[in-house]
Write a protein that binds this DNA or RNA. Structure first.
Lengths: 164, 164
DNA sequence: TATTGTTATACTCTATAACTATA
DNA sequence: TATAGTTATAGAGTATAACAATA
């Protein structure tokens, strides 16, 4: 087949203006692109606030689900947070070794174990939750309360569907 | 110090109602949590649409920036897409070996190279862009045009600041 | 036969150090 | 001295297969 060749040299945006911003308009028109960038922009400050507690975002998420759902099983945590069972094992074990979480026999299913926060774990979770919550309502998001509510409603519509 | 112990046994949400949904209300109140889940919900359909072109999201992003900015340098692509230079090398090399992208000497900086799409690369990019764009405006997002515009405006405000 | 929790492992993604050629 | 592109490599994150104990 014939090769399609450009008869004229193309414009050279990169070399013509080395300091000019690139054209990324198409990517910026995509919800996925903007949602990912926004999530990454928020995660930085959240990481900072969680650092004093020696928790990453995933650790905080697991600890929070356990704190708010005493006796929850590993499989339930996996389903709620989209974590694969083999990958949860190490997360829970680390929280357990730090004395924040403990396992107890499940009352009606001897295969399963109920997960509980310890008294220390409950304190750490509550303080970490306050720190994380403070980021979201701070100026770091550049949004007022109404904008935040609108944003969350629209985001939930995307991953839960129109009926949510 | 005294240990803070619960005088009463805690409720057992996990074991009491095994099929009941967990309490994840706090996480659901966070912008970061919702933005990440929305981004993950969108990326699935996008991956499907890109699969026929044998492009992942990152490949499509790089190809698109090059197509829209002929002569762009590697460093500029890295800055625009938040990719570290060592990690871009393999991406560009793969696109180059598939005949979608080519490097040419930079006219004024012999250290740098200008990146260009080939004629085939331009065709592939244009068709992939149409496929990706169709996902966003489809029912898959559960949003109408006005909601989509509002959502993108609020997301941009988060990562660009209030003046954007 | 299906499910819970687990081990081992592989694969991808992201990050750091250091080198060369050039500015 | 600083920057563009590159190599090698380390680490985190995510994925599959398979097992013992129990339903």
């Amino acid at each position: 087949m014939h090769s399609v060749s450009s008869p004229l040299p193309p414009p050279e945006a990169g070399s013509d203006s080395p300091s000019a911003p690139l054209d990324t308009r198409f990517l910026e028109s995509l919800i996925g692109y903007n949602a990912r960038r926004a999530a990454l922009a928020i995660i930085g400050p959240v990481l900072q606030r969680l650092a004093p507690f020696e928790l990453r975002v995933v650790d905080f998420s697991v600890l929070t689900v356990i704190a708010h759902n005493p006796g929850v099983t590993s499989r339930q945590v996996c389903a709620a947070l989209d974590i694969l069972p083999p990958n949860l094992v190490g997360l829970v074990r680390a929280l357990e070794q730090r004395g924040l979480v403990e396992k107890r026999d499940h009352p009606r299913d001897r295969r399963a174990q109920g997960l509980y926060v310890t008294a220390v774990g409950a304190q750490v979770q509550a303080r970490a939750q306050a720190a994380v919550g403070a980021v979201e309502s701070s100026d770091l998001t550049h949004l007022d309360a109404h904008e935040r509510a609108t944003l969350i409603r629209l985001l939930r519509k995307i991953y839960l569907g129109p009926e949510a």
